[in-house]
Design a protein around this nucleic acid. Sequence first.
RNA 1: GGGCGAUUGACUCAGCGGUAGAGUGCCUCCCUUACAUGGAGGAAGUCGGGGGUUCGAAUCCCUCAUCGCCCACCA
Length: 893
Amino acid sequence: MELSTRYSPAEFENDVYERWLASGGFTPSAKRDGTKKPFVIMIPPPNVTGVLHMGHALNGTIQDVIIRHRRMQGFDALWLPGTDHAGIATQAVVERKLYEDEKKTRNDLGRDAFLARVWAWKEEHGSYILQQYRRLGASCDWSRTRFTMEPHMTRAVRESFVRLFDKGLVYRGARLVNWDCVLQTAISDDEIEYVSKKDKLYELRYPVKGREDEFVTVATTRPETMLGDTGVAVNPGDARYAHLHGATLVLPIVGREIPLVLDDTVETDFGTGAVKVTPGHDPADYERGLRHKLPIVNLYEKDGRLNENGGPFAGLPREKARDAVIKKLEELGLLGKVEDYTHNVAISDRSKSIIEPLVSEQWFVKMKPLAEPAIRAAKSGRLKFRPERWEKVYLDWLENVHDWCISRQLWWGHQIPVWYDEDNVPVASRTDLAIGSKHPQTGKPIVRRDEDVLDTWASSWLWPFATIGWPDKTEDLARFYPTQFLSTAREIIYLWVARMVMAGYEFLDHLPEDQRCPFDVVNVHATVLDPKGRRMSKSAGNGVDPIELIDKYGADATRYSLILLTKEGQDVKLAADRIEQGFRFTNKLWNAARFALMNVAGKATQDPTLTGAQLRLEDRWILSRLERARREATSALDEYRLNEAATLLYKFVWNDLCDWYLEMAKPRLSNEDDPSGAVARGTLVRVLADTLALLHPFTPYVTEVLWKTLHETTGGDAPMLMNARWPDGRGLSIDEAAEGEMQVLQDVVGAVRQVRNLTSLGERQPLQARIAAPRAAECAILTRHLPTMRALAFLSECDVSEKAERPKASAVAVSGGIEVVVLLGESVDLGKLKDVLQRRAEKVKAGIAAIDSKLGNAAFVERADPEVVAEERARRDELVLELSMLERNLAGF
RNA sequence: GGGCGAUUGACUCAGCGGUAGAGUGCCUCCCUUACAUGGAGGAAGUCGGGGGUUCGAAUCCCUCAUCGCCCACCA
């Protein structure tokens, strides 16, 4: 196969993905294979309504890097994909479409017809986001793709609900819930967000019963709720109201008599120190109402309009009611000061409408008992968070957990499996109960099923085990639970992660305790921000579409950039130029491989691990560097430090392999007569093969293509890289001697380059370099490698002579304690050269002074690590040597 | 009101107790037959301010400032 000169990922990515799929490597068998251990990641199921955004792209990349690495390490690697039915979000999408297309509401269609529409929508659009994951290169087992509304999940959800119901952990109660007036459903505390809103703070005056002209003034931002007031509270210690303790007030407009109560929670220094109490529509007032046994007045219909309790304002929506109430109070002379006021208001995550707290009948789960094992899991270290700080966030929530309102007044979702008899006695059942059949406990006829559906999280908290068969005892469940790694966004630590842990402990009771925890490690990934540091969001329109990046740069480049850019868990601003880094890297890799293959094709190669003595310094060096990179990358990946692994491989490929080894090997490769060519080719093949394997988790497409070409070129038959073994370093070792010698050569070349750069200021002339290495050891190295030095001549356009005589006119450079003297004509800019040398001399002097002050410090010499002290001394010696050479040369000007 | 993060060259970020790093951008040179999506060299940082611990601090502690997230019933 010919590789094109241009790296153009679009030409091969789709084909490669098809080959991966065909290989079956994404799909592990549930059958136990004695030699393989499972490694499992459950994808955080994206909403079926979702479109891939940067967060998904980053998280998808993280999971894919890890699963591919584990697969290559020989684990039975399963990455299970799927989507979430996302009750509210999906229903809202379909309702909106229905209204736009046909001007109908869901009520016009009726429940069954509407649900048919939702399913139709899901069939048409539901796999879109998973297709996008494929573009990224995600090696998910698509044969195990799950959906939280599929029939099996319904069974799992019912099983879990019935178990909790039978244990008394589910209860029905009237509670103040967050009501979304647009979607007309209750939503949980975790689904609301707070936004700052400019409002007004109104003072209202309530007449005191039986006392002419005496009033209690309350402050409120929501004057319309006064219609539902059933009390006014003041702080018991507030002297201003001491004379009114026990008084009764008369609620204006309504005329209701309401008591003045004493409550510690009232702040004396806010507003007037008197709080109107509306237990039906304010969470704090609800609590106060309970404490003082105040009645609850519900003011609203489900759509947010005032009901009959609104008196003269019944039927008005909330905003209009506010204006009307204010106007009326003004007429009555009971409106006090009105001030501008900025405060936080709760809005629905989904509809973005202002939440109206109201009292209604809902189903709740008792969370305290479920939270206990989840708390233990983290505290005992069974469950680990990365970065660790998120453990605290997780624990804080669990330790203060509130009961979970799980009923939603929606149609799209798992309908609550509860039936009622004629006396309204509920029963939960795994199977449908027919209307008219007998209630299992009371024996009375069943008259209806609960209309509500369950919160979406009541199905997704079962994700780690329901997706592989639970409640059935399947082979998959036995093989793949618990999982090892979960990577997710921080926003859903409470919503999802904590609940999955609870569910694992609660429902997997056939397993020993430590086997119930659904994962070993929870990775909380970075948030990708826009270039200004703001969250990317659809509404702000500041998102960057990862698919556009993939189109432009390829999936590999996008993946590599994301990993290079984001240290785990640390937010990052997405900078366009930083995305280019990944692209440049993949291009570099492509061309390096192309060069290697061009030189290897049809020629003899010798395995460098078998030809010991014939290895040149650069061969030994690159093999040593490869082994170092392999060890470091492996341990970084084993510990999920992806950014470190990617950075280190980047440096190995670019700075070691391309900048040095390929350049040094060129003469050997191009010269047909050079007997060491076969060794160089063998080295190149070995290094390239291992490098492709090490990079494969990060850049799977390009490495797969190059791997195939490499094996075609060398005539070998190889499995796909995806299914190949992770490099084990066979035949390689860390060669400290080779690395040390190579460092000397690199220093010399550095010095030569410096000089060469100076000469290019004038006319270019052939140069002759002489190297003056003042230390015996370095002289020996240089002498031994003079052929190599000549090979490097292309870099400096100079010959390297063995003698170290000082010429009269010369350009000089010093690097790493080695002096390079270059004979040249008048082309060198002597003024500039002197400048460079002087500046360098200054730096060296400063360096020496710094070390002297350190070494002169007795405390340092005594207390510091002896190795550190020795290093300082050695460093000083080098600097002194360099300074003497610099000064000698400067004296010549 | 609590909690957590961030603050390192022009920009985006690594480093987290012992000689200040990378990519981009900028300046000088080079189309050297893998790559100009490239190569060589260079300028550029009192590591947010102030205290402290230490022989030594970008790195640990305290404090302040700015920005950003999360949690919280101030009407």
